[in-house]
Amino acid sequence: MSTPSLVLRYVGFAVIATLINLATQRLVLDVLPPDAVGFTLALLAGTATGLVAKYWLDKNWIFFDTSAGMAAHGRKFGLYTVMGIVTTLIFWGMETGFWLAWRTEAMREVGALVGLGIGYVVKYHLDRRFVFEDRRSHD
């Protein structure tokens, strides 16, 4: 796959996962009050749904990983999740910083978008190096 195609696909999948993440957060915050507990649960739920979606998309359409079976998926998803810890801290830090600075939904989401954008760039490089062994997408 050419570099422009890879970048376009990765960005598209990042957008999809971001929309899933933010939609999940909105759903949680529609049900719970936007206090510390509601905000924390929204962050966790959004992160979980975005993570699962992005793993599936990256595994199949970015890294073309053909491994199968619960052991392989468990190992790779575990590594993928560990690599996501640093990038999640970037995301949460930006979103929380924007929330604390402005205390508005719009600015919270701007912070989330900025944090997710930075985090996805870092995550791609970590996943490419440490998680997925099939490198056909990088020839």
Rank of each mutant, 00 (worst) to 15 (best):
N60I: 03
I62N: 09
I62C: 05
I62P: 02
F63V: 03
F64H: 15
F64E: 12
D65L: 03
T66N: 12
T66E: 15
T66P: 03
S67C: 08
S67F: 10
S67V: 09
S67A: 13
A68T: 14
A68R: 14
A68K: 15
G69E: 07
M70N: 08
M70A: 14
M70H: 07
M70K: 11
A72T: 08
A72F: 06
A72E: 13
A72C: 08
H73V: 05
H73D: 13
G74H: 08
G74R: 11
G74V: 07
R75N: 13
K76Y: 06
F77S: 04
G78K: 05
G78S: 11
G78M: 10
Y80L: 06
Y80C: 06
V82R: 01
M83P: 02
I85Y: 07
I85T: 10
V86K: 08
V86M: 14
T87C: 10
T88S: 12
T88I: 07
L89Q: 07
I90C: 06
I90A: 05
I90P: 00
F91R: 10
W92M: 10
E95K: 12
E95C: 02
G97S: 06
F98E: 02
F98R: 01
W99R: 12
W99E: 09
W99I: 07
W99T: 10
L100T: 07
A101P: 01
W102Y: 13
W102F: 15
R103W: 05
T104S: 13
E105A: 11
R108L: 10
R108E: 07
V110N: 04
G111Y: 01
A112N: 12
L113V: 11
L113H: 04
L113E: 02
V114R: 01
G115Y: 01
G117V: 01
G117T: 03
G117K: 04
G117W: 01
G117E: 02
G119W: 00
G119V: 03
Y120E: 11
V121R: 01
V122W: 04
V122Y: 04
K123S: 12
Y124Q: 03
L126H: 04
D127T: 05
R129T: 14
R129N: 08
E133D: 15
E133I: 09
D134C: 11
D134K: 13
D134H: 15
D134N: 15
